[in-house]
């Protein structure tokens, strides 16, 4: 599904990713862990096409297409979704109008007619239930005045609406209390099918307890320095990253 080969990327002339190689197959859950500043968020931003980052080398294919050649909105239409670490507040743009625009542009890309108003609202209601998102929030401006937990629920709600093939969850667990974490994680699990894949970027084991990764990678200094099964996350939970850093730096 996703194949990253020798990916180098920089921001403001500073190289952050220094040769990433990663392959995600349909149905897999990959966890990417790593100390602060290792390039985890840069990787997710580069994949979704954030304009501040420049890819200097390497290639990425997504379902056989050259991902890096696509505009950010087309990457979304192709089925790539990012749950933002810091969801953006958009005053004055209602959740309904925002989601309607997103859904209908996706449908247009796929050659489908726009959803009728009642069908759309029905879809909103259905998907809201996935993450127990309050109907009041759905009537407000995008993320405006949402608590940290509500913002993250809202990300998963949007994921449910857009039904992506590959979701990147960028520290979706940060700022969540135990209950919200469970709701969010269960939401993600309910959305999972054998055809969809997930990349989970996290510092902690607790989200992985729910999402059960098939593969765990450690990103450090812009490279994937360790790849193993789920037991690696448990070991990191116990021992931290220092032992890995030491191995790499020696």
């Amino acid at each position: 599904m996703l194949k990253i080969s020798n990916l180098h990327a920089s921001i403001n002339g500073k190289e952050i990713l220094k040769g990433i190689n990663l392959e995600v197959r349909p149905g897999e859950v990959h966890a990417i862990m790593g100390p602060n500043g290792s390039g985890k968020s840069t990787l997710s931003n580069v994949l979704v096409g954030h304009p501040s980052y420049e890819v200097t080398e390497g290639e990425v294919t997504f379902n056989g297409k050259d991902l890096l050649a696509l505009a950010p909105e087309d990457r979304s239409h192709e089925g790539l979704f990012l749950s933002f670490q810091y969801p953006v507040e958009i005053p004055g743009v209602s959740m309904v109008n925002f989601m309607r625009a997103a859904i209908n542009e996706q449908r247009k890309y796929r050659g489908l007619a726009p959803l009728a108003a009642n069908e759309f609202l029905k879809l909103m209601r259905e998907k809201r239930a996935f993450v127990e998102l309050d109907s009041k929030l759905a009537n407000r401006s995008v993320n405006e005045g949402f608590s940290g937990g509500e913002k993250k629920k809202n990300e998963i709600f949007q994921m449910a609406m857009l039904e992506p093939r590959l979701s990147i969850l960028d520290e979706t667990d940060s700022g969540l209390d135990i209950d919200a974490l469970r709701i969010v994680a269960e939401g993600v699990n309910k959305l999972k099918t054998p055809e969809t894949s997930t990349i989970v970027i996290t510092h902690y084991q607790r989200l992985l307890d729910y999402l059960k990764p098939d593969v765990v990678h450690v990103l450090y200094k812009g490279r994937i320095v360790k790849t193993a099964g789920p037991e690696l996350a448990l070991e990191i939970e116990k021992r931290g990253f220092d032992w890995i850093k030491k191995e790499v730096d020696e």
Binding site: V48, H50, E73, S76, P87, V88, F98, A102, E105, Y109
Partner: peptide
Amino acid sequence: LNEDALFYMQQRGISY
């Protein structure tokens, strides 16, 4: 215009 908001919307499939 808020560039972060623009990008957020693009990520959801809304054109620039």
